[in-house]
Design a protein around this nucleic acid. Structure first.
Lengths: 227, 227
DNA sequence: ATTTTTGTTCTTGTATACAAGAAATACGAA
DNA sequence: TTCGTATTTCTTGTATACAAGAACAAAAAT
């Protein structure tokens, strides 16, 4: 498991690498290379990212503020491992936010944004046939992201993104389910249609249901993993 | 303007003061002693809070992650001064979240939580007569907080709290309007009634409208302040 | 055997030193 | 004067040293 991407140049000595450090750690969590509960040793991270503890600490604080990391005073940082109850709460919040984004998108999306959604939808369609689960996961993210963006509410999009990052450890594995991809696609179609026809109520409901189903799957998984 | 509370002992040499530093700076922003746009000089804060730059920097990073502070690389930190468009977006998000919280509270609040809401409502009523605008502002916050908490969704309550902190510079001054307090109280009554009678739809709508009106007032103020 | 206690080690928390970029200022030319 | 440029100063970014609490392990007592 190589944390550092060998294709990237990590030898550059100067620059504001604090931000890079944060991005790197965040990626490692979101993409599942660090798992919930994993200890994040400052010195270990520092040597691994070839820097000192200072930028690491600052990055960890930021990630803690966003909820991705938990810091216990004098005890170090770990990847957040929220209780099942908290994960349920998070899903509840994100489904409401995404539903709201869909409503706003139906009201406000520009034509360009609508076509972007359509294209993302078609990409999903294509990849739902393929066996590359990771690719479908990413395409799915693009589809949802296009809607957040089409809500034309920057803060809403940001909030959804933050919450989604916290949920990604639990969401990531779901699309592996074979039948789920088919269902998901038909739900996407409903959503895309509602947006294209500018039906806020329909879009909102379709999106809420869609995310809720995802939530249920994720929660079932979380339960079997004895979260 | 004394940033440091003179009643507190700030001479203690040890302890995990990083958290205290963060809380202190956050308070200074939320309570309006630092205004949007104000520069947050690390060394100045360090001497003022009688510590070194390290804890200050870590606190500033955390606050930046929560949106209260903006850090431009190699240029230092300032209190975030979002554009009018962003403030509008934030209000839109928070009104939706609070509306959702009201809906959930109507569905799930325990009897104890309902009475807490009722008591907070009565406190508001009492203080709406008084001339102490700050006291009313705080009572109002308690009333809303009781509802967030009664939603029995920890993450939702947390999110609303975070967004509200970002808006506090713009919200704080509104309750000064004399007629507004009366209207606000009647809106609170509607909300409290809907919750007591467990009418989710009514509670949701009443809360959304209530927050929206506050938003409009705040935005008008923000406009006159040439945000 | 279990539990308590004590000591050691390891990690985090804080302070400080140094490096390096940004802002401000002063100077010179048009 | 005004603009451009060079220089200086100041602040932030990073590394490291030291302090202090927490986790761990070993030993002693029950």
């Amino acid at each position: 498991m190589s944390i550092i991407d060998p294709t990237k140049d990590n030898t550059r000595p100067t620059g504001t690498l604090g931000a890079l450090v944060e991005a790197q750690i965040e990626q490692d969590i979101v993409e599942g290379r660090f798992l919930p509960g994993d200890r994040l040793d400052e010195e270990e991270l520092a040597t691994r990212l070839s820097t000192s503890r200072t930028p690491i600490r600052e990055a960890l604080r930021k990630l803690a503020a966003s909820g991705l990391v938990t810091i216990r005073p004098r005890s170090g940082a770990t990847v957040s491992r929220p209780s099942l109850a908290l994960v349920i709460d998070l899903f509840e919040v994100v489904s409401e936010l995404e539903a709201f984004a869909a409503r706003l998108a139906a009201q406000r999306a520009t034509d360009t944004q609508l076509t972007a959604i359509q294209i993302a939808h078609e990409d999903c369609e294509r990849l739902s046939q393929s066996s590359d689960a990771g690719a479908y996961f990413n395409a799915n993210l693009v589809f949802h992201g296009a809607i957040w963006s089409a809500s034309n509410n920057v803060m809403l999009a940001e909030q959804i993104g933050t919450v989604n990052k916290r949920l990604s450890p639990y969401r990531r594995q779901i699309t592996f389910h074979p039948t789920r991809k088919q269902d998901s696609q038909s739900e996407h179609s409903q959503i895309a249609n509602a947006l294209a026809n500018r039906k806020p109520d329909v879009a909102e409901k379709a999106m809420r249901d869609h995310v809720m189903i995802l939530s249920d799957d994720a929660l079932q998984l979380a339960r079997t993993l004895r979260l």
